[in-house]
Amino acid sequence: MSSILVTGGTGTLGRPAVTRLRATDHQVRVLSRTAGSQRGPDAPDRVVADLTSGTGLAAAVEGADVIVHLATSQGRRDVQHARNLVAAATDVKHVIVMSIAGIDRIPLPYYRSKLAAERVVAESGVPYTILRATQFHNLIDRVLSAQRFLPAVIAPSISLQPIAVEDVAVCLAELVDQPPVNGRAPDIGGPERRAVPELARQWKQARAVRRPVVPLRLAGKAFRAFADSAAMVDGPAYGRITFGEYLA
Rank of each mutant, 00 (worst) to 15 (best):
A17T: 15
A17D: 06
A17E: 01
A17Q: 06
A17Y: 07
V18P: 12
V18I: 06
V18R: 04
V18K: 05
V18S: 04
V18L: 07
V18C: 06
V18A: 03
V18G: 01
V18D: 09
T19G: 09
T19P: 04
R20C: 08
R20V: 03
R20K: 15
R20H: 13
R20W: 02
L21A: 08
L21R: 06
L21E: 04
L21V: 07
R22K: 14
R22D: 08
R22N: 04
R22I: 06
R22A: 04
A23W: 02
A23T: 07
A23K: 10
T24H: 10
T24W: 00
T24V: 05
T24A: 14
T24K: 06
T24F: 01
T24S: 10
D25R: 14
D25H: 15
D25W: 07
D25A: 15
D25Y: 09
D25L: 13
D25K: 13
D25V: 11
H26N: 08
H26C: 07
H26P: 13
Q27S: 14
Q27M: 12
Q27K: 08
Q27I: 13
Q27C: 10
Q27P: 07
Q27A: 15
V28N: 08
V28Y: 13
V28M: 10
V28W: 11
V28T: 05
V28C: 08
V28H: 08
R29H: 14
R29T: 14
R29Y: 12
R29S: 13
R29K: 10
R29I: 07
R29V: 12
V30F: 01
V30N: 02
V30P: 04
V30Q: 01
V30M: 00
V30K: 03
V30T: 09
L31K: 05
L31H: 07
L31W: 13
L31F: 10
L31D: 00
L31C: 06
L31A: 01
L31Y: 12
L31S: 01
S32N: 10
S32P: 09
S32D: 08
S32L: 01
S32H: 02
S32V: 03
R33H: 13
R33V: 02
R33Y: 05
R33I: 03
T34W: 06
T34D: 12
T34G: 11
T34K: 14
T34M: 00
T34Q: 14
A35V: 10
A35H: 11
A35E: 14
G36Y: 13
G36C: 08
G36F: 08
G36M: 04
G36W: 13
G36Q: 11
G36P: 09
S37C: 01
Q38D: 15
Q38M: 10
Q38E: 15
Q38P: 10
R39W: 14
G40Y: 05
G40C: 07
G40S: 12
G40W: 06
G40Q: 03
P41Y: 12
P41E: 13
P41W: 12
P41I: 05
P41D: 11
P41R: 04
P41M: 07
P41C: 10
P41A: 09
P41N: 08
D42A: 12
D42W: 05
A43M: 06
A43I: 02
A43W: 02
A43H: 03
P44I: 03
P44T: 00
P44H: 02
P44D: 07
D45C: 00
D45I: 04
D45Q: 02
D45L: 00
D45F: 12
D45G: 00
R46E: 03
R46Y: 03
R46H: 01
R46V: 11
R46F: 03
R46M: 04
